[in-house]
Design a protein around this nucleic acid. Structure first.
Lengths: 341, 341
DNA sequence: AGGAACCTCCAAAGCGCTTTGAACGTCGAG
DNA sequence: CTCGACGTTCAAAGCGCTTTGGAGGTTCCT
């Protein structure tokens, strides 16, 4: 059943019926009720395609996701998506997933922006120089960002306090007596990686420790990379007594390296990992249970979707800039530094 | 630039331009080339919304995903999605994600089917009695299934050989001398869970072993559940010498249980897990490296998307029914059964 | 030469909705 | 009693594309 038929059924014009349905004021309460009741009764549902064509709005939000193997984002992404879905579903917005490789990301974005298949784009994992943000800004296409944009002015975004998290975690380790600390961080072009790096550095500075006691490594955060990196560090002369991990996956690799070398966690080696709350891999299910800096990626997804919808509704870009606190949760993978050999 | 303008520019009618662009035969090669060149030059892109309205086809495929916490599907889902995205992107199809909880799944499906926002739906994790399949069949809405449908007749699907995988894995353990084996399986309303169960049972029967030596448990496949279940089994009188795991996540929980109880893997306990190839959690990154039955969920995603597109193109439902072989990969988590105490 | 049988191309009618501009009472003010 | 204002409703014009039913122009056979 379409609008025309419904209108005919009611002996009203399409105009009136459409207005009644969409809550416009130019229609009397009485007719509105009649129309609503009839729509309900006939199970009328407006055609999204027609509405889209007529209004130019897609009623959908776009999420671009990296279709290449990206072990870091992968398990996080679903949880994040679940958050996005949660709120967008409430508003009846569809979610359009656009696969893209880093190489043709820009093409994907401009296609999305021009095609009108989505009303707003959600950007994730901003980089220090991010062509995507530049592009969308220039096209004046609505978007919001999950993560700290390199130039936050005029950009709506939400981020977790990566700086604070790693400052806190590092300070905690220092207080436990750890001096040689290895930080296995992500790739250094991401803003969150830089923030974490700064957090750790500031903690060292605050403790009056020389900067070079912090042994920092940048790499894609896979278990495999982490394993390799951890082995190398743990077999070196100046063996670290603690390792800071950028994610639970990294911790997995580190744990394996420690086990292989016969090191006991936390006696010989302390581990702190950042935990985005992947339900599939809860930090407390590891052995030993992991001390973490915790934040909910799902909640972030939900919030960023809210922002996206607000943006569609006309909210100014840059209206929202939230940084969520991160909690340090001490579990069994950390202990006082071993006596110096 | 829209079709009308492009046509005007070329001094041709919209009809001809449209046909040239869409490869219809009623247009001479010469004009087609001219049109194509001009479209290219002006960067013309047809409006998806208009095309959708005119043709009634959305050029999109729908994937319903469980927005509730579902630790099993979560990390798999992205990898699966990546596969779907891979092939659908090639054909210019959009992917629409519809969140849904198990409770309102049916509503979600009928909405998708009626709205015309997608041309075909991909169904995952079919159950022994699956109302979704019934619904879509009745509505005559195109769909394809990932996993074995309860009633495969007239349904296009692709599945991995869950039966064979677990039969093989179980036989392998039996050959290693294991007699008391625990199988930590998924929830028993899924068809793949039943298949795996049958596989293990058949292996026992083939070896002439009594059925009750197989200690089988059904549960959502989370690390936590697995941990609880494994502890209980390992602390019991008739302690198993081997555990079959439905997923890598399950293995994680089992490993933890073993570590807590001071059991060495594989000396005291052998572990075989099914591995869907989550790049985030490679089986060889565990300690010890896991013996697995391996299949690529990403490849399956790619294939099921292909099927979906073929279905849109008019292929009959039921035209495809593939069951992919699963490979047993022996690594370090399995060994000969310990001497009987 | 006349007509059938193409080959190309076109005008116009949708697809189902929103939205503009106007018409039609009805009512209170002058 | 007339006029302007207001509250309701409507007809019709898009939105940008596809597609039906022809209309011209060629070619080919008889």
């Amino acid at each position: 059943m379409n609008l025309k038929e419904l209108a005919a059924e009611l002996h009203l014009s399409q105009t009136t019926v459409s207005r009644a349905l969409n809550g416009y004021p130019e229609v009397s309460e009485k007719t509105r009720e009649i129309v609503l009741a009839a729509a309900q009764r006939f199970g009328y549902r407006p055609s999204p395609a027609a509405r889209r064509l007529a209004t130019g709005r897609a009623h959908a939000l776009g999420v671009v996701f990296n279709a290449e193997r990206n072990a870091l984002m992968d398990p996080l992404f679903v949880e994040y998506l679940a958050g996005v879905a949660e709120t967008s579903a409430k508003q009846g917005f569809d979610i359009l997933i656009s696969p893209s490789t880093p190489r043709d990301e820009i093409t994907t974005f401009s296609r999305l922006a021009r095609d009108g298949t989505v009303d707003v784009i959600i950007l994730t994992a901003p980089q220090l120089t991010d062509p995507r943000i530049a592009l969308l800004s220039e096209l004046k296409f609505p978007f919001v960002v999950h993560g700290r944009p390199p130039a936050p002015a005029g950009v709506s975004y939400i981020d977790i306090d990566n700086f604070g998290a790693f400052q806190q975690a590092t300070s905690f380790l220092i207080q436990l007596g750890h001096r040689r600390i290895t930080l296995i961080n992500g790739e250094d072009h991401f803003t969150f990686v830089e923030d974490r790096s700064r957090g750790a550095a500031v903690a060292f500075a605050a403790a009056g420790l020389p900067k070079d006691m912090l042994d920092e490594h940048f790499m894609p955060m896979t278990a495999e990379n982490a394993h390799r990196c951890a082995r190398q560090a743990l077999e070196s002369e100046a063996r670290p007594t603690a390792i800071l991990c950028g994610s639970i996956l990294v911790a997995l690799g580190v744990l394996r390296a420690a086990a292989e070398l016969g090191l006991d966690v936390p006696r010989d080696l302390s581990i702190v990992a950042h935990d985005d709350e992947m339900p599939a891999f809860p930090a407390e299910q590891f052995h030993p249970q992991l001390t973490t800096t915790r934040s909910s990626i799902r909640a972030a997804g939900a919030r960023v979707a809210e922002m996206a919808l607000a943006r569609v509704a006309g909210q100014k870009p840059g209206a929202i800039a939230e940084v969520w606190p991160v909690q340090l949760i001490v579990r069994g993978s950390t202990a006082a530094a071993p006596e110096r050999a």
